[in-house]
Design a binder for these strands. Structure first.
Lengths: 350, 350
DNA sequence: GCGCGGCGGGAGAGCGCTCTCCCAGCGCTG
DNA sequence: CAGCGCTGGGAGAGCGCTCTCCCGCCGCGC
């Protein structure tokens, strides 16, 4: 009963199990990993010995030889402008977006016995360090949430040949797998709904203009509105927070008082817009129709409940986890893209 | 240029760096880990060699000998009743609570170079497996979010002598460190506010009655109300979701139509209560005053903005990370508790 | 001038596992 | 009955690192 440097008792190793079972270390390893033809009787003897000793394989030792960690990293990559201690990251974690992604990933990873490690990268330095750590085997693969269009990380990962899947398409074409939503279709669905309601003075609150998802939603909305005869409409960008939606709505109201329909690029901002409309005394949907995007918990929480475009984020995250695991299993797999279709969820706001 | 089984090129090892630097493996190791007295000139030579080779230490190999992983796990432990694929976990991830905890932990762990691994446990089986994995060294320590009062996991962790810190006190006294909020004080603050406004018919929407935080909020509220002369008030339990708050409010309204003040045990439910009040045509705060709890993003998003009890979760999570790292460094440390004080954040709803 | 202490640095063991060899034993065929 | 293939299982070499042990060198004191 020697003690290791963590102060605990020495834990049983393969060797101990082998001794108890009266076989060699190799055989125990074979049984535990379920490989090759091992005598079924030995099988039982070994498992009994495992139980008796309370053996748990040492992950570090195993990784060292297999070069697999059983861990994938969820990397949230923010732009450099946001300082390391910027509240933005905090804001991001609080956004239902983050939670939905984590939930979706876990639904696939947990049954597969794979750990999820969280990684934030803010600086360029952190980016290269991350790629180094990853190449060296910190994780078997990466699910990447890139928050900034100029982000170099997708390219770095692709170049390093690491197993990676992005949630949301890369800003520039890149040999990297990704899962995305047909954001333009979403924008078009919103436009059709607003047009069908007979809205004549519509406006939009978009996300940051350089974020692909945001740009796509706007493009789809714009194109469909044009098809409905609306050549132009005011558009104010926000940053996906409740607050920015509220501010944007106030600005729109000032610019275009006779406005009767708004498409907002996410539910959080739509909730903010609702608040601004309420403060301005506009009835929703009677005077102004509002359509959100995402169908997050905020959509149901809002009053009136938000008519919104459903973004099946959990499913998308789950799919990205599946793609990643497949790629980890077979590194020769080519980059794949999976595009999900949005749907309109009619509720009270439009 | 041999290739490993991941299909990549062999990565530089300590040996390679040593060769380039013209020193021994041991010396490179010493320089990299900054130990002992190494000739300053060698120092530079070694670092140059590291840069030249693009060396990154292999974490698995290092862990194998140091018995440290540089990882802590955030364990979210749910009760067994919730099946593995129960939507509850999804709900939990979407709750701002989860995001705030993650953000707070990261603010301490990232600068310390420590990874955060996410672990969900639902079944008893998963609990013992987790303890095994942890003892064996899957992570250096655990931040535990135990969602259910009967949860055995805190006890198992304490018994195994693992480094662990709970967020929220354990349901039963246990030799385990924790960080908590003075929830009774929070309840009392709400009671005082309602009393000061002259509310005469108050009610409460509580969380699950067996969850310590929930019970404490209720007890504090009840005690303070008694001091204000209110011997009794109706109380309906919810489960911390928006929806349950809405339902609870409807029930209260039916039971006690002349109600003029409500204390709700979290902001999400308070938001739901606000929606129910709005549907019932009650003006907030003129006819009914509402006080929430947490000061989460939902409080600001609500209309009217929620007067609420601030729960400094990010700070608490950060503190728990600090306690954990200290304990990992020095396993002899005794269990510590840190209790944070809530404050009232006056806004429009009360 | 010799001995001794201290410090810088090399050699090498070993962390716990996987996996390649290799050998023993069995059943089959000619 | 010899020879061959096949299969089950043991021996042992590493995976890449840390850390103990030890040795050689330098500077000091007597």
């Amino acid at each position: 009963m020697s003690t290791d440097r963590r102060g605990g008792t020495r834990l049983p190793t393969l060797e101990d199990v082998a001794q108890v079972a009266g076989v060699s270390r190799a055989t125990v390893s074979r049984v535990i990993n379920g490989v090759r033809n091992v005598d079924p009787r030995l099988h039982e003897v070994v498992w009994n010995a495992v139980d008796a000793t309370g053996y748990v394989p040492n992950r570090a030792a195993r990784s060292l030889v297999t070069r697999r960690t059983g861990t994938v990293a969820l990397v949230v990559s923010d732009s450099e402008e946001h300082a390391e201690d910027d509240p933005f990251m905090g804001r991001f974690f609080t956004d239902p977006f983050f939670g939905r992604v984590v939930g979706g990933l876990m639904s696939v990873l947990r049954p597969a016995g794979v750990q999820l490690a969280l990684q934030l990268v803010g600086s360029t330095d952190a980016r290269t360090r991350l790629v180094g750590d990853l190449r060296q085997g910190q994780a078997d693969g990466v699910v990447l949430l890139s928050l900034h269009p100029e982000d170099e990380l997708p390219r770095l990962l692709a170049e390093a040949g690491l197993a990676a899947v992005m949630i949301g398409r890369p800003a520039r074409p890149l040999p990297i797998s990704y899962v995305d939503l047909a954001n333009e279709t979403g924008g078009a669905l919103a436009a059709d709904r607003l047009a069908a309601r007979g809205c004549r003075r519509v406006a939009m609150i978009s996300g940051p203009v350089d974020v692909p998802a945001s740009a796509d939603r706007m493009a789809g909305f714009r194109r469909a509105m044009a098809r409905h005869g609306h050549a132009w409409f005011p558009c104010v960008p926000g940053n996906f927070t409740h607050d920015s939606g509220e501010r944007a709505m106030r600005r729109l109201l000032a610019e275009q008082p006779e406005l009767d329909g708004v498409f907002v690029a996410n539910d959080l901002m739509a909730q903010g817009a609702l608040a601004a409309l309420r403060d301005a005394g506009r009835a929703v949907p009677q005077e102004v129709a509002v359509i959100g995007f995402d169908d997050s918990s905020a959509a149901l929480a809002a009053r009136p409940a938000l008519t919104t475009i459903r973004h099946p984020l959990e499913d998308m995250a789950a799919e990205s986890a599946r793609l990643l695991l497949a790629r980890v299993d077979d590194p020769t797999l080519r980059p794949t893209s999976v595009i999900f279709e949005p749907t309109l969820v009619p509720r009270q706001s439009a």
